[in-house]
């Protein structure tokens, strides 16, 4: 198993290097950090030179990434020009903020989706199932920005005092009081939960229905296994196998920052930072976030593979 994990990690390194190289070239090629300075030359020669140095603009476009790789190997991911902080600091601080909404959103969302899937799968094509399927269809059709705006307006107007949210008055205001923090987390997390549950529960329902139709479920019933045990032991264990991969993807995506939702609720997570970095041609921050999300994706995929192997004895790591 250890050998398997090592092999998997090593296999992704060249891919990541190529991706980072291309991203670096792409960002450098599409954006011009000097745009503002060109107009005022030669008056602002000092600022111009400073930018040239910060962005290594005197180095050829195709060679520029190597400077970055060199320092990155030493653990230095550079400095964000737009936010004026070291990239590692930003990733850490913003990552924690993102995790504050990502972790509850993932946990609650996954559990709710699983419960709804089981509910639907146990009574397919009944009223209850149709109602849930209909709701998930509707939820799934909502782009997250529409969902976020609708929730914000609905809850901010209806329960304004409770949530204290006004448009442009959202975000993480304090970190001191748990209740206050929970209140600030609530709306962005709820948005992610609704959108996520809508997508996951349809997948979960299909997986659970397929499992409940398997021959071994009939065998279990023929043995006299109580229906509860049939569902929660015999079926669930099998239905979880495809879900684990989905969860890994979801969680790594959420932890890399929900760009739209965090931006709308002015949540100071990785998402808005990513938008800023793109808008400001902040190469180092762009690369930092790309690395961050790539590492998360690889890590969670590995976790999923390991769980896969634990759940399904047919999988072997070799």
């Amino acid at each position: 198993m250890f050998a398997y994990i090592t092999r998997r990690v090593l296999a992704t390194v060249p891919l990541l290097v190529v991706a980072l190289y291309l991203v670096h070239v792409m960002v450098s090629a599409t954006t011009d950090p000097l745009a503002d300075f060109r107009l005022c030359l030669p008056r602002c020669q000092d600022g111009f030179d400073q930018i040239v140095e910060n962005y290594n603009l005197d180095v050829n476009l195709w060679l520029r990434p190597f400077t970055w790789f060199e320092s990155a190997l030493g653990g230095d991911l550079g400095r964000s020009e737009s936010l004026g902080l070291p990239v590692t600091t930003i990733l850490w601080d913003r990552g924690i903020n993102t995790a504050m909404i990502a972790v509850p959103a993932f946990l609650v969302g996954s559990i709710v989706a699983l419960l709804l899937s089981i509910y639907s799968a146990r009574r397919p094509y009944t009223k209850g199932d149709y109602a849930l399927t209909g709701l998930s269809f509707i939820g799934f059709a909502f782009p997250s920005f529409v969902m976020a705006l609708v929730l914000q307006n609905l809850l901010a107007v209806q329960f304004e005092n409770w949530f204290g949210v006004k448009p442009f008055n959202t975000g993480r205001k304090t970190g001191e009081n748990f209740l206050e923090l929970a209140r600030d987390v609530f709306l962005p997390a709820l948005t992610l939960i609704i959108v996520g549950v809508a997508a996951d529960s349809r997948f979960g329902r299909a997986s659970m229905i397929e499992t409940l139709n398997q021959d071994y479920i009939r065998t279990a019933r023929a043995k006299g296994v109580p229906e509860k045990t049939v569902v929660w032991k015999h079926a669930l264990r099998n239905a979880l196998i495809p879900l684990v991969t989905l969860w890994a993807l979801n969680f790594s995506a959420l932890l890399s920052g929900a760009v739209v939702t965090e931006s709308i609720y002015s949540w100071p997570g990785l998402g808005p930072a990513f938008l800023t970095s793109i808008g400001e041609a902040d190469v180092d921050l762009v690369l930092g976030i790309v690395i961050f999300s790539a590492v998360l994706t690889v890590a969670f995929n590995l976790v999923a593979d390991v769980l896969y192997g634990i759940l399904d004895p047919r999988i072997r790591f070799d």
């Binding site: 071994y216 009939r218 065998t219 019933r221 023929a222 043995k223 006299g224 004895p313």
Partner: peptide, 24 residues
């Protein structure tokens, strides 16, 4: 009925490849 299933009346199914739970 559940108490009778498996105790008084037991059943063997057609396809042994799919009739046993793969994860136990």
């Amino acid at each position: 009925m559940r108490a009778i299933r498996g105790r008084d009346i037991a059943m063997i199914f057609q396809d042994p490849m799919t009739a046993l739970n793969p994860v136990f």
